[in-house]
């Protein structure tokens, strides 16, 4: 078979002598940094865009779709405000867990993690309680549906985060992965948790206060 290759104006071989070492099975001088946190952060940007889409939809509904007459869409403020406080405090306690680990205080780290998880699950319990006390259901009207969709999606994140915290708690026991010198699970769960809390604050502002 014939093939037509280009006629180069010059060949790379003619570009002058090259030096270089090779042959070592190791690859000296190459850094293999740990980019998992960077990857996670990029993922959280993506995740945040999902929420952004939901918020944009909600705000547009608000702007152009009036609530049909006879339908209810009333939110109590007390419980969600309490929940906001719970999440904010949990962000702080998670931070304490991280500092404890850096101080080599493994037990302190575990204690703070448990507190964080407990706060997270209390948040979920509060959310459940709110769901059951609301005067509207999922399909009652546009706002009811949007409310449940957004808070539900966020609640899924909290659930996932809570489970992650429990896993990290297990890994930070004596001899576990985290205490054994790989802080990645803890740092990842912490970043994720702060993200989930931050989203909640925005959500609270848009859904409850606005």
């Amino acid at each position: 078979m014939t093939s037509l290759s280009s006629t180069p104006s010059q060949r790379p071989e003619a570009l002058g002598p090259q030096t270089g070492e090779h042959g070592a099975s190791e690859h000296p001088g190459e850094h293999h940094g740990d980019h998992r946190m960077f990857g996670l952060a990029t993922f959280l940007v993506a995740d945040g865009m999902t929420f952004a889409g939901f918020f944009a939809a909600y705000l547009t509904f608000r702007a152009v779709n009036p609530l049909p007459s006879g339908s209810t869409y009333e939110l109590e403020l007390l419980l969600p405000t309490l929940n906001t406080v719970l999440l904010l405090v949990s962000s702080f306690t998670f931070h304490r867990a991280g500092s404890a680990l850096r101080r080599n205080d493994g037990d302190g780290c575990q204690r703070w993690l448990l507190i964080t998880a407990a706060l997270g699950f209390s948040f979920l319990a509060g959310q459940m309680k709110e769901y059951f006390s609301l005067p509207f259901g999922l399909t009652d009207n546009l706002f009811a549906s949007t409310f449940y969709a957004i808070t539900g999606f966020h609640g899924l994140h909290v659930t996932l985060g809570g489970l992650m915290i429990l896993i990290v708690w297990w890994q930070s026991r004596q001899g576990g992965r985290v205490r054994g010198g790989d802080p990645f699970p803890l740092e990842a769960a912490e970043l994720y948790w702060h993200f989930v809390d931050g989203i909640w604050v925005v959500l609270y502002g848009i859904l409850y206060l606005l």
Binding site: P12, A14, L15, G16, P17, Q18, T19, G20, E21, H22
Partner: peptide, 15 residues
């Protein structure tokens, strides 16, 4: 020719 330095390009035998 020569104006372009591939000197920094290691692994000469690959060429």
């Amino acid at each position: 020719p020569g104006s372009l330095s591939l000197a920094a390009t290691s692994g000469r035998d690959l060429w």
